[in-house]
């Protein structure tokens, strides 16, 4: 009985298999992207860890000096010998520097914390359902994750409008934004600008990512959403980023458009409905 129920039609089976393959592709592209980012993230974390760690050792030597002074309060025979010790440990410097040392170390730890939580926000691998989400927060997390890829290539400016919560799979939207940001940075030869704009237009939310990079030629612009199409050297790009971005946005019932001028730059525009039409299709 149950056997007869399964093969409803060949086409449905094929569709299911296609959908499964597409999801696997999405997942592997995401892992590849994270792998590419890992080196950058390590750099971002190694810097603060480097100075916080070194500061802790300096702190230890300051404290040893200070304890020498406080211990001497009991044993010293005169005030002058205490003063001599105070002079000797460069008390004024230590006192002044301790404040900076702690403030800088705290800042370093904050940075590590931000990066780690951004990575967590960014991945959300387990989440696969449509939920109202804060797009701007997603963009900020993504920026934190890719900061290392961007900061040596471009100044990032944000022009954020007021956005309603958007019903979406935020980890997938983050992935699209990451693709566009990394592409924007790769398109810039020396140092340029990347502008991120968001605004509400009726029932939809618009995200624009514009760069001042090389631009895309007319020949290529029709092919950028094709799977495996890439102009990057082998090993630099999989050619899947934009095609998967296109799929993700399509699945969200949104649109992704591109405008580009050679030598001037490129602007990608994503339009997403704030609310998904009825129940999002099962897949």
């Amino acid at each position: 009985m149950s056997k007869a129920a399964i093969p409803q039609s060949e086409q449905e089976m094929m569709n299911a298999r296609l959908e499964q393959a597409r999801r696997q592709l999405l997942q592997s592209e995401k892992l590849a992207a994270i792998g590419q980012l890992a080196a950058g993230v390590a750099h971002e974390i190694n810097n603060p860890v480097g100075y916080v760690y070194s500061n802790l050792q300096s702190l230890e030597s300051y404290l040893t000096d200070l304890f020498r002074l406080t211990d001497a309060v009991d044993s010293a025979d005169s005030l002058d010998s205490l003063k001599a010790i105070k002079q000797n440990i460069d008390y004024e410097f230590v006192r002044h520097d301790l404040k900076d040392l702690l403030a800088e170390s705290r800042e370093g730890i904050e940075r590590v914390k931000t990066i780690i939580s951004a990575m967590k926000d960014f991945s959300h691998i387990e989440e696969e359902e449509f939920k109202p989400a804060d797009i701007q927060r997603g963009i900020e997390s993504t920026l934190n994750v890719v900061n290392n890829e961007l900061k040596y290539k471009a100044e990032v400016t944000r022009e954020f409008g007021d956005l309603p919560p958007v019903e979406c799979i935020i980890s997938q939207i983050n992935q699209v934004v990451m693709n566009l940001l990394v592409n924007a940075a790769h398109a810039i030869d020396d140092f340029g600008e990347i502008r991120i704009r968001t605004r509400e237009a009726g029932d939809t939310v618009i995200i624009e990512i514009e760069d001042t990079g090389r631009g895309i030629s007319q020949d290529n612009i029709n092919r950028i959403f094709e799977p495996f199409f890439t102009t990057k050297p082998i090993g630099k790009g999989t050619g899947l980023g934009l095609s998967l971005s296109f799929n993700i946005i399509e699945k969200h019932n949104g649109r992704i458009d591109v405008e580009s001028a050679l030598g001037k730059g490129t602007c990608f525009r994503i339009a997403l409905p704030a609310k998904q039409p009825r129940a999002p299709e099962d897949s």
Binding site: N47, Y51, Q57, S58
Partner: peptide
């Protein structure tokens, strides 16, 4: 390019 790195190295090398 990171000032905090510079100040921690300065501390380290001061003695």
């Amino acid at each position: 390019d990171e000032p905090n790195i510079l100040s921690s190295l300065r501390r380290l090398l001061k003695p």
